[in-house]
Write a protein that binds this DNA or RNA. Sequence first.
DNA 1: TTTTAATATAATGCC
DNA 2: GGCATTATATTAAT
Lengths: 159, 159
Amino acid sequence: MASAVAADSRSTFSIDRILGLDLDPAGNCLNLHRPWTEKENRGNSLCFIQQHPHPHPHPHPHPQLTHRPTSNWYVGRRPRTAFTNSQVSVLETVFQVNCYPGIQLREQLAGRLDLDEDRIQIWFQNRRAKLRRSLRETRLRLVQTAVADLGVIGDESHR
Amino acid sequence: MASAVAADSRSTFSIDRILGLDLDPAGNCLNLHRPWTEKENRGNSLCFIQQHPHPHPHPHPHPQLTHRPTSNWYVGRRPRTAFTNSQVSVLETVFQVNCYPGIQLREQLAGRLDLDEDRIQIWFQNRRAKLRRSLRETRLRLVQTAVADLGVIGDESHR
DNA sequence: TTTTAATATAATGCC
DNA sequence: GGCATTATATTAAT
């Protein structure tokens, strides 16, 4: 018990020790503390696997690749979805009433609009960000106006 | 209780209901779910006065406002910390060795990297979540491949 | 150039 | 601590 508690402060886990460690290409190392990679994941260090997070076969007509990889970083990026006007119209209307739709409503929308639920989710996230952005800008303008007014007042007092 | 849970699925938030609503030009409406525009945002909403998300060289000046959830909204959400490449580099290296650093090691890292210990804590939590996510997706792909292979075998047996 | 879908990740809240 | 979700920042396609 005591040893376990003390382990963290001992030299084995000091930063200097850690940064000095030699890890093999697979990232394997003594004292490795990563319970879920033990056994079944041996041989491949999955830490930095950067494949596209959507293994998700898209039902819609789909160009598998929209843009040339060149550097294979964003090869797996989902092709940009083009919402129709009527889809956006419905989404905007719903947004007016509830900008945090729960899973049920999102599924309902997905079915109605023939979109995947995660597209709906993303749309609402981006829509909220857009609203916040506009609110910020409005506020900024208000502040700037206020400051400008103060400036005018200041000038007047100096006149 | 039950009503709150059921709210999303009840008629009030059904698409049909929503699309049938009459919203005034300002978009005001009963059941409006947009926390940050309610009430206190008339005039000055400090919600977003967090200023420039970027200009902080580093989170030394602490926004000691943790969150103040008035309803569902964080009044004083901590400004997003932007770790430098070298900070992340060190964190990743440590993570390779110990993805559950104890308080001692976290403090050590905090001192070394000029960050608060709780930022380190959060970073490791998010990093573990990322790893778990990638492992899940890898497993999912493996299962899908296996299923596909079974499908091929099935076809062959029918040939 | 502007808008916005997609992505990555820091921060929160609930268990 | 895990997990789901959100806010935020950035990138890339239009």
